[in-house]
Design a protein around this nucleic acid. Structure first.
Length: 408
RNA sequence: GAGGGUGUAGCUCAGUUGGCAGAGCACGAGGUUGUGGCCCUCGGGGUCGCGGGUUCAAGUCCCGUCACCCUCCCCA
């Protein structure tokens, strides 16, 4: 029979990688809880038009990376390529805004993009993210950045934080026109990609890596020259708060982000340690998106982090609970060993009943390989062996043995 | 979507001008008939990614294909 292989760009996460995955998600969940963000569990599929209207019709994500299909009712469906659009849709559709005040959500799960697989880049990848709706002050930007920073710190992941401001929606509109005018005159010197970008999204020309493009943009109009008073002021506030929290950052005026919905503050946490795909977490404000998707004008800010990329940077897992191996010395004591194992589990201990039959030696090898901290030999009595020291004590009464283990 | 690299045992890899498919680790049994790690002995394991071609003969040469890795692009 021919072996069936996994689909290109997809992966099985198991063993140590699965532990890393859980560790990252659990850590993030704890921090989300500390910041009092509430979980929102969202569909993995959405109407295609949701992403066209939020992420942007001209973006690569929408143009060539979405998994789309028609369902049996003829609906145009997409596997979600990112999380923010769905949270915004849910916020509007469920009239969450009607409760007044502001709202904080986090999510976790798979995203899908049909891209060329690479280190730290898969067609199904997983993100954790958070969104904050209904507040537009700089405090909310910093709250999100601080939240991401806390997660990375607990995971002991070292990154560089880059920030920038894109200005308000109106500021940016004026600036983009000016930039387009300026670059159109230099069009001949731009790379092929940038010629296209000039039409679709001139901002992206600013972070092109081609030398000739870099030269041409040096003298180009600067975004900060077009920022309104309010935008400048809020950007200064954001920087002030970050400094006050001892969160180091570098300003990168070329940081523009690839999704259309961002406004004002944008940020990326970047590492050099995992190759070309160095952005580990990123986000920013999107004050116009809720409105664009049919909701009431609602400012918002959020972020997303790639779990696979975080996994590449986590090299130390926290030590787990001690494992206790229960070994019947021969088949005669199998039933008793089963009972002992279950009793210990009810006492909230972590137990591996050694299922392998055969010599005691081979059972011990299994216990050793599983990194058991203790072994209990079950016969007419119970012998507790400490696997680190090798010392062994005999117990007649199982309850006393249990108490000893629980106190250790 | 474009360019480059790599596919041989469970893992990491060697394999010369084309001439019997290899090592280390891992795994199994034993060395101790009731005790792991270190050491020793023995053992099981392969469609050489897949398909085609050249040849007396292909892991090795040629073509195609798939997967992974890297770069560009894009992004988390």
């Amino acid at each position: 029979m021919e072996e069936i292989k996994k689909v290109r760009g997809f992966q099985d996460i198991y063993g140590e990688n699965a532990e890393k995955y859980r560790y990252i998600v659990n850590t993030a969940r704890k921090i989300f809880d500390k910041y009092n963000f509430k979980e929102i569990i969202l569909p993995y599929v959405e109407d295609v038009s949701l992403f066209i209207r939020s992420v942007g019709e001209e973006t690569d994500i929408v143009q060539k990376e979405m998994y789309t299909f028609k369902d049996k009712g003829g609906r145009e469906i997409a596997l979600r390529p990112e999380g923010t659009a769905s949270v915004v849709r849910a916020y509007i559709e469920n009239r969450i805004f009607a409760e007044g005040g502001y709202h904080k959500f986090f999510y976790e799960g798979a995203m899908f993009r049909y891209e060329r697989p690479q280190a730290g880049r898969y067609r199904q990848f997983h993100q954790i993210g958070a969104e904050l709706f209904g507040i537009n002050n700089p405090l909310s930007d910093v709250e999100i950045i601080s939240l991401v920073k806390d997660i990375l710190d607990v995971l002991k992941i070292d990154t560089r934080l880059e920030i920038n401001t894109l200005g308000s929606f109106e500021d940016r509109k004026i600036y983009i026109e000016e930039l387009r005018k300026y670059l159109s005159e230099k069009k001949e010197n731009l790379c092929e990609d940038c010629k296209k970008r000039l039409e679709k999204n001139p901002l992206r020309v600013l972070d092109c890596k081609v030398e000739s493009c870099k030269d041409e943009t040096k003298e180009a109009p600067k975004l900060y020259e077009y920022l309104s008073e309010t935008s400048i002021k809020r950007y200064e506030e954001v920087k002030k708060y970050l400094k006050a929290l001892d969160i180091n950052f570098v300003e990168n005026p070329r940081l523009v982000r690839g999704l259309d919905y961002y406004t004002d503050t944008v940020f990326e946490f970047i590492t050099d340690k995992i190759g070309a795909q160095g952005t580990v977490a990123a986000g920013g404000r999107y004050d116009k998106l809720v409105e664009q998707l049919g909701g009431p004008p609602t400012p918002a800010v959020g972020f997303a982090a790639g779990i696979e990329r975080l996994m590449l940077l986590v090299d130390e897992l926290p030590q787990g609970e001690d494992l206790i191996a229960v070994i019947p010395i021969n088949d005669e004591f199998n039933l008793l060993a089963l009972k002992v194992a279950n009793k210990l589990r009810k006492e909230n201990l972590k137990v591996e009943l050694i299922l392998k039959t055969g010599s005691l030696k081979s059972k011990m090898k299994v216990a050793n390989k599983l990194k058991s901290s203790y072994v209990i030999f079950v016969s007419d009595s119970y012998e507790l062996k400490d696997m680190l020291t090798g010392s062994q004590i005999k117990y007649e009464d199982l309850n006393i043995l249990v108490q000893t283990l629980k106190n250790s």
